[in-house]
Design a protein around this nucleic acid. Structure first.
Lengths: 144, 144
DNA sequence: GCACTATGCTTAACATGTTTACAAAAATAA
DNA sequence: TTATTTTTGTAAACATGTTAAGCATAGTGC
């Protein structure tokens, strides 16, 4: 009879928490040199990749609730990394854009950030890494 | 040429965040009726399963940093769900124990909480669910 | 037009995440 | 024993997570 594994080893919520820490810990360390949090970095990357974009779409892509995003956008604007302006067609909406200073931060940190992820991928093996992504995306699919 | 997927669909950090929300969202909803947060519930369950236990061990099993745990234990103690006492052998340490009221909360909510997880498992299919857990646990292994 | 509802975003309040510093007790070195 | 280091937990400060409420604008039905 093999002893049963501690329940935490079979707990999906805990496994997800540990995985997040495992993946983001090294990236957080990188970004602290640029005085950016993990969430600020995520928002900045979404804005850079998407061009003009409104907060609602950012929140979906960066997986942040709007109240958190409001604060983060304020900080990124204070740091001069993004700009905001009112949408003239719909004055409830705003349009967010990255600034040259924001682009510079991306340039300075993107390579090292991608290398951390690539390192994880290599250590797991690409097939297993892709399998993990597929299973997570399946779990996240709306229809289920 | 198929259009490339948006980067977020291939981003492990975002996929992990979405999965956490997907899994814990329904459990949070359950626990709000008992006025417990997801983290307070996790701590309470660890204390219930492990019997007498010190904060350092709780933090490892519940995947919480000690400063967060300090506050959570204070709140659980205020609610009368746990007890704490100093360890007489090593007076830096303390010993945490669940109270009858704490046991009652577990009794009232454990079944529904497990059902949420089981529901996820069923929807994904047991094999794929187990595969996901295995891949996450592999990612989390210390040695890598 | 006017009342009603929906949308986009912000604010507020409380809980946790994260880092750094700190205090007390214990282990270790000398 | 005394000085040093390590361990355990807490406190403080700032950022985010989460829920509920609020405000302004836009859309809808009448």
């Amino acid at each position: 009879m093999t002893k049963q594994l501690p329940s935490t080893d079979r707990s999906l919520p805990i496994a997800l928490l540990r995985a997040r820490e495992r993946v983001m810990g090294p990236i957080r360390a990188l970004l602290s040199d640029a005085d950016l949090t993990e969430q600020q970095w995520r928002v900045l990357r979404v804005v850079q990749e998407s061009g003009d974009i409104d907060p609602t779409q950012i929140s979906e892509q960066a997986c942040l609730l709007l109240p958190s995003l409001t604060r983060i956008l304020q900080k990124l604007e204070d740091k001069g990394l993004i700009q905001r302006e009112k949408d003239q067609m719909d004055r409830r909406r705003q349009i967010v854009r990255i600034t040259p200073a924001g682009e510079q931060i991306i340039d300075d940190n993107l390579e090292a950030s991608l290398a951390v992820i690539e390192n994880t991928r290599t250590k797991m093996g690409p097939e297993r890494y892709e399998a993990l992504l597929d299973l997570l995306n399946e779990l996240n699919r709306k229809g289920d």
